[in-house]
Design a binder for these strands. Sequence first.
DNA 1: ACAAATTAGTGGCATATGCCTATATTATCA
DNA 2: TGATAATATAGGCATATGCCACTAATTTGT
Lengths: 175, 175
Amino acid sequence: MQAKKNTGKTGKRPPSAGGELAFTMPPPNLCNGTALRKATRRVSQLYDAILAPCGLRSTQRSILMQIARQKSPTMGDLAAAMVLDRSALAHNLKPLERDGLVAVVADVEDKRSRLVTLTKRGEAKLAESMSLWRDAQARFEKAFGAEKAEALRRTLSVVASEDFAEAFAKAARKS
Amino acid sequence: MQAKKNTGKTGKRPPSAGGELAFTMPPPNLCNGTALRKATRRVSQLYDAILAPCGLRSTQRSILMQIARQKSPTMGDLAAAMVLDRSALAHNLKPLERDGLVAVVADVEDKRSRLVTLTKRGEAKLAESMSLWRDAQARFEKAFGAEKAEALRRTLSVVASEDFAEAFAKAARKS
DNA sequence: ACAAATTAGTGGCATATGCCTATATTATCA
DNA sequence: TGATAATATAGGCATATGCCACTAATTTGT
């Protein structure tokens, strides 16, 4: 960091942030990542509050639901479907295992793999959460519009896809 | 990806999840929260990889940027602007404080409040991150389309707003 | 067949996020 | 003014997320 720019009007100011920054401040709300994270925090909070009575958070519920869909996926398949890091998935499964909602068993086909399954309790808990989830969904669509919600989900699924990740990676930076 | 050798409905199955569930399985990709979280994880990963050389994650960068915008916000103001729980913000600031990028000082006006400011190092680090961030943004817009990206950000900002939270809360379920 | 490369998962570390409770400070009101 | 409510934050606990390095098992190249 070099000496401060002499713009001619720099006076003595509090220990920082008073003067001009070393870059042009972009307009607000321009970062796609920040916009996504803010919306996600808001919605997770709203959904979690509705789901609370069943003792599942939205993250946990989405994992149980995905296991139900894929029947008995490997850790890797499940992680890929959730766009979730493998180790993150492993950590997320721990509380669910501890509470007896999921079980992880070795795969006899490929001993490197482990298969994740719902237990009876897991199925029951997922079933129990359905009406709460439907309530949250209904509220979202009422507040935001069902059509717009569907369009948003489609858009988000593009952004979450591996195709998008590859396009992002290939996107040459300015030549 | 291995095909499960599920021998019909009579065969041996893992300790659960073989039969019909106690609810009707909704079509995939229907949950707004899950769609948001998946897209956010993907984009955070992509942005973080680009930002890595400067040592900031996208979350940290967005906090520094918001502090720069608000000059010296209180914890509460900053948390509200970030749609972030206060205690989460407090935790997130710890590594930044430790690294000397931000400073938290008591407010003389209201001794309950603490003001968050960027240090010189924080300003410099933020400035250093700008070109990396612009690279990530450019990649996103090239892969997704600049127009669509802007539309998405506008949509997300609606979802993240307090107005939306209120509308969600009021959205009566039983009409 | 055997070493090398690849693939699957674990464990450690660090950050991210949120709830609940406690504490300190300020504002209100009888 | 003194009790009380409201506000701002801190701390403890738990889950969420991701990177890296490591181990185990399979696949591949020769």
